[in-house]
Design a protein around this nucleic acid. Structure first.
Lengths: 197, 197
DNA sequence: CATGTCAATTTACACAGTGTCAAGCAAAGG
DNA sequence: CCTTTGCTTGACACTGTGTAAATTGACATG
């Protein structure tokens, strides 16, 4: 039946997420996921033809659970460009640690697997669209730095908000999540908002 | 003989670098390197016990060839903090594309291989030291932004100059190398240099 | 009740890539 | 001439992914 089908599929995804959120995300094997889900390794392949597709499905499932769309959408209600920038950094920046385990596995896979690469690129493009909207709002307020075109400003914000940068600042440099958020707001403002005022 | 030994070892490293600089760096296998060097796969293992150690040796060899130390040292002669920041971004930023192939392979390996991870971390710490020196110079000139401690400023510059950011801006966003260098200078200045003056 | 279907199982296997091991060979140097 | 050094060939173990075939158990429908 379709519901039992969905249950097993969901169990696999939950098992994958649980393991990916543990310390070493990239080392999760199909057999580990199967064991965690309480089914055979081959049964996993009945639901997901490849490891890459399982990981992609896991990220989509995670987005659904965490309601990333709703959280990012909240930043669209901010009254002006500056508030919108801050709200977007809050929403996305605080989302990163929740998806880091899965993202890390996907990030590692993209080096070798084309499917993983495309899936990740697609998801990152969604973030880029959010950045473009923020830049647009800054432009509408007339406070976008004249140093950059809208396109360049989007590239800059998108790069500042990359998962890799979050990883480097929090995990490698030891910044707290709060410090990361606050500093990123300050830096993004310094880079994108014109200072005459 | 020791010289013949060194010759073969060097041939292996040159072969590895040649392949790693080609399009898909992470897919270079031990057998590919052996073939390129004109020796058997097993002979490679006589010189390098693991793939990770070969890659690490390749980066060290590349640094030697490209004289990274000399190039980074040049920035130490800059007259003031601002010039030193610009010189450092010039030196390191223009070095990145030359080592990108090898760096990418090492970056991909660090997800699974502890040796690769440590080697890369060590090399990146060298860059971080350069960043710390630049921040120190800015501090001596009294123009370091009061928003950040010296440590934080170092973390920020180091993160801005990461290979991942170069990759995202030039390869994914399509910026030219010149644009990357110029923009990075502007952004680093906006983030680190206090604007009262 | 018989039949078909569908999920999942077990077992087995193909394949790629890393790393190990053993035997042998060719050249240089005492 | 004999030993050492550097490399070769060939075989093999191991891990992890993905494929395939035969089987079981549940359940629904004629």
């Amino acid at each position: 039946m379709s519901s039992a089908n969905t249950d097993t599929r969901t169990r696999i995804l939950m098992a994958a997420l649980k393991l990916l959120e543990a310390d070493d995300g990239s080392a999760v094997r199909m057999s580990d996921i199967a064991k965690e889900a309480g089914i055979s390794r081959q049964a996993v392949y009945l639901h997901f033809p490849t490891r890459a597709e399982l990981l992609v499905a896991a990220t989509l499932y995670l987005d659904e659970i965490k309601d990333i769309d709703g959280r990012l959408a909240a930043s669209r209600n901010a009254p002006d460009g500056t508030a919108r920038l801050a709200a977007y950094i809050d929403a996305w920046g605080n989302y990163i640690p929740e998806i880091y385990g899965v993202a890390r596995a996907l990030l590692a896979m993209q080096a070798t697997d084309e499917a993983a690469k495309l899936a990740l690129a697609e998801r990152m493009q969604a973030v880029r669209h959010g950045c473009a909207a923020v830049v647009q709002a800054l432009g509408n307020d007339g406070i976008l730095s004249p140093d950059h075109s809208a396109e360049q400003a989007t590239d800059i914000l998108w790069t500042m908000l990359s998962i890799r940068n979050w990883e480097q600042l929090t995990i490698e440099c030891g910044w707290s999540q709060e410090a990361y958020i606050e500093k990123t707001k300050v830096l993004a403002t310094a880079c994108l908002v014109s200072d005459e005022n």
